[in-house]
């Protein structure tokens, strides 16, 4: 059965085979797209000159918040491969940190949000030192345990109002423009998060994180300080979620554990990343927009939060089973990704 192949044929075939495995070159980035998007978001509140668009602004603010939180989660969950199901703990820490400064000293959260982010990052760093010793499923479990611990602590901490929470003072602005400070703050947080996510993905640090997500032992033997990388990723990922929490807390004017520390918030971050494409830069944003639009529809049709939970779960099962790479990931794999979404 010996075929007539000669030595040179085999060598040539091997070369061709290897070239076939290499990926194709990179395309030009569509830098104009995020700038245009940002410009539109800046101009959107102009609708309020005629009035009656408060709900639209609310929805956009909500979407920007989740785009920021999902992008932030993605730095740990997508790039590094450590799935946290308790990331809303940092949302809560951010919210309460700034909220308490507002309640006790009257300083608006819009100014203290970076500090709130820092507080969340410090906690994230400390928690990460402990929990990031675990890998895979064990880490996921520890993240749920973290959420449970936080819930018990906040429910019983009288200084922050326990399970009843605290009401925050409102800014003295006419209702027509009341949303604007928060809207623009959230926009800044969102833009900052996405920019950071992009920069990290294309840095040496980001390369290290992705190496960790593929094979941590090999990454370590390649000279990456995996422990420091992971903990730093955790802290960064907590930072932006904390900032979002700070703004959200003052925006909704009260703090309660059962707003910040419910599993649905964490589930949303995870699901948005899965829907859009875990580990891609644009994925979490696409996922946030799609899921929030979908939730709007389902709440309109079904109301009740239990049904919403059921639907969130169903969407997640379906997405995981049929679209594990998410919208952006799947399109990229099929080489159909529009240039405006290609930031990887």
């Amino acid at each position: 059965m010996a075929t007539g192949l000669g030595v040179s044929d085999v060598l040539k075939a091997r070369k061709n085979y290897n070239e076939g495995l290499a990926s194709t070159g990179r395309r030009e980035r569509a830098t104009w797209f995020p700038l245009v998007l940002l410009a539109l978001l800046v101009l959107l509140p102009a609708l309020q000159i005629t009035g009656g668009h408060n709900y639209t602004l609310h929805l956009m603010l909500y979407a920007m918040m989740y785009a920021a939180m999902a992008s932030s989660w993605n730095i740990l969950g997508g790039y590094t491969g450590y799935i946290s199901l308790g990331h809303n703990v940092f949302f809560c820490i951010g919210g309460y940190f700034s909220g308490m400064l507002l309640a006790y000293f009257g300083v608006t959260s819009l100014l203290t949000a970076p500090l709130a982010g820092l507080a969340a990052a410090v906690v994230g760093f400390a928690v990460g030192l402990i929990t990031l010793k675990m890998r895979g499923p064990t880490f996921i479990i520890s993240s749920i345990a973290l959420l449970m611990v936080a819930r018990i602590l906040f429910d019983h901490w009288q200084f922050v109002g326990g399970s009843n929470g605290v009401t925050l003072p409102q800014m003295d602005i006419p209702a027509q423009w009341a949303k604007l400070p928060y809207y623009y703050s959230m926009m800044v947080v969102c833009a900052l998060t996405v920019w950071a996510s992009y920069r990290i993905k294309h840095s040496k640090f980001g390369l290290g994180l992705r190496a960790i997500s593929q094979d941590e032992v090999k990454a370590e033997s390649a000279g990456i300080d995996t422990r420091f990388y992971k903990v730093l990723a955790f802290a960064i990922s907590a930072f932006f979620v904390g900032m979002a929490g700070a703004i959200w807390g003052e925006y909704i004017t009260y703090l309660r554990p059962n707003i910040f520390l419910i599993i649905l918030v964490a589930a949303n971050m995870v699901l948005m990343c899965i829907l859009g494409g875990k580990g891609t830069v644009a994925g979490p944003i696409v996922g946030a927009v799609v899921l929030i639009a979908f939730n709007e529809l389902s709440v309109t049709f079904f109301g009740a939060s239990e049904i919403n939970l059921l639907i969130t779960g169903l969407v997640m099962v379906l997405a995981l089973k049929f679209f594990p790479a998410g919208i952006v990931g799947t399109l990229a794999r099929k080489r159909r990704l529009p240039r405006v979404l290609d930031w990887d």
């Binding site: 059965m1 010996a2 075929t3 192949l5 085999v10 075939a13 091997r14 085979y17």
Partner: peptide, 10 residues
């Protein structure tokens, strides 16, 4: 076996 093909056999 090379490149997933049978090259020689005997």
């Amino acid at each position: 076996l090379d490149l997933g093909r049978t090259l020689f056999s005997g």
